[in-house]
Design a protein around this nucleic acid. Structure first.
Lengths: 140, 140
DNA sequence: TCCATATTTGTAATCATTACAATTATGTAT
DNA sequence: ATACATAATTGTAATGATTACAAATATGGA
């Protein structure tokens, strides 16, 4: 994925969102760091570039980006939300050992359905937990 | 499912858990209320029967029951944990309108696998969000 | 340039969860 | 039955993520 300020600008404009500096930087961070960061991870990094940024802005922006469909939000750990600029359909794996979250491509049989058993489906989340490949190799 | 104190007692004993009054009552509540209750829902109900019960006990017990594999734990809402005495493989649907959580039977293609792409899989969570059938009918 | 509005910021409040120490209950050996 | 070590429960305080809210700042259009 090509990440430049021009494309980020257009992304925001396409959703009628004013491309402010903070919003651009938050979206840029998500595109450059596709490791499902927490709000705090985003906030702490952006502090270096925008010393006046507030955590509230990060929260507000992420919530807004999610509502506009520009990012997705995971609750896989149970303790904090994590964000992903990749909004396509995919599953996630949380390693209990290293804490990393890995993207998984699993074909959900009802992924493309708008309705299932009479319920309208708007979001789909597939989470797996266990020990990742890398941690398994390290403990040998 | 037959819910009586005898079977609950045996369930706990089978996992080498001392069947105390609080533990029995918590497990009994989960078997009689299969609507994925929160800790607070369980606590508030149990207060009527056990006026001295502490919320910490409810937390401790649920965590322990989860580790023993006697209950499962959902983080579908993102704000609080919910518990389920049904530990078999199934998915969940959260209605954004009424807040109810509905069990769904969706065949996950990797549900029975111990490993996937080199990662050991211990838990599997499938969450869907949208508007449930009942709410759709009511708003017509 | 001015002004209404949108955005950002900082602080305080909320709420779920956890830490921890004190109290109470339990099983076992005597 | 009693005493004691251990397990379980309880209550309170602390933590940490998130939200509420009002003040300060920035922005686009007249």
């Amino acid at each position: 994925m090509i990440t430049n300020m021009e494309s980020i600008n257009n992304k925001l404009l396409s959703k009628n969102v004013r491309p402010t500096y903070q919003r651009m930087k938050i979206l840029e961070y998500l595109e450059k760091n596709q490791n499902h960061p927490t709000v705090d991870m985003i906030y702490r990094y952006l502090l270096k570039e925008i010393p006046t940024i507030s955590k509230t802005t990060v929260y507000n922006t992420l919530t807004m980006l999610f509502e506009k469909g520009l990012v997705s939000c995971l609750n896989i750990t149970g303790t904090e939300s994590r964000f992903d600029c990749y909004t396509g359909n995919h599953h996630h794996f949380l390693c209990e050992k290293c804490g990393n979250i890995i993207d998984l491509d699993v074909k959900c049989p009802i992924a493309d359905k708008k309705k299932f058993q009479g319920h309208v489906i708007k979001e789909l989340h597939g989470y797996f937990k266990g020990i990742c490949k890398k941690c398994l190799e390290n403990q040998k």
